[in-house]
Computed example of a mutant assay.
Amino acid sequence: MSTVKERAAGFLLMCAVVPLAVLGYLLLVWIGVFGPNARGRAGVRALDHFVNATVFNGYAWESISSHAWRVREHKRWARFVIRLTDRFQKDHCMRANKREQPVVDLIVKAKLDKQTIF
């Protein structure tokens, strides 16, 4: 029964969050062109984490770059991301992982990645 409750709660939450996410994306485009750099970077970072969690089945608190470095031996998409980012900044994914891996380890160790409701 808890699975049904969890799915219903998730659906209701997404009904509220998705329109806000669309608004957030539009604001991010505006801020990227006209706004302060720090706010734009924060928005892009949040979008990066969202895409990592949803598209690449990664942790919500980890960037695509860090995730790619962590799974580079097993995932073709990760090797592609590493090659692509290396064109812009050498060893970008390795440095992202070095910076983010302690956070990932702490959250997993504290079991903060586990279900928290129901």
Score class of each variant (00 low, 15 high):
T54G: 03
H49P: 01
H49K: 12
V22Y: 14
I64T: 08
L26Y: 11
D105L: 03
L47H: 02
K90M: 09
A21D: 03
L23Q: 06
K98F: 12
L12Q: 06
S2G: 15
L112S: 01
F80M: 08
L20R: 06
N97Y: 15
L106E: 14
L27T: 06
Y25Q: 08
A60R: 09
L13P: 00
V18H: 02
A78L: 05
G58Q: 04
S63N: 01
D105M: 03
S65P: 00
T116L: 14
V55H: 01
H92N: 07
G10H: 04
I117Q: 07
D113M: 02
K98S: 10
T3L: 13
V18E: 03
G10E: 13
R45I: 14
Y59R: 15
S63E: 02
F11N: 04
Q115P: 03
G35N: 09
A42R: 06
A42Q: 03
T116V: 13
F80C: 11
S66M: 06
R72Q: 08
V29L: 11
G43W: 00
V81L: 02
V51Q: 07
A110E: 11
K111G: 12
G58W: 03
F34V: 13
R72V: 10
A46P: 00
I107W: 09
V71L: 06
G10I: 03
H49A: 10
V4R: 13
R39L: 15
A16E: 13
N97F: 15
L13Y: 09
T3K: 11
V108R: 09
E73I: 07
A96T: 10
T116H: 13
H92G: 04
R39G: 12
F88T: 08
V51F: 07
K98W: 14
N97A: 11
N52E: 00
L23S: 07
Y59K: 05
V44M: 13
P102G: 02
S66Y: 11
W69K: 08
V29D: 03
G43M: 01
A8V: 12
V71G: 01
H67V: 03
Q89C: 14
A38C: 00
M94N: 04
H74S: 13
R79H: 10
T54W: 10
V33H: 08
T54M: 06
A96C: 13
P19W: 13
G58N: 02
A42E: 06
L112N: 00
L106Q: 04
A96D: 07
L27W: 14
V22S: 08
A21S: 07
K5Y: 15
G35A: 06
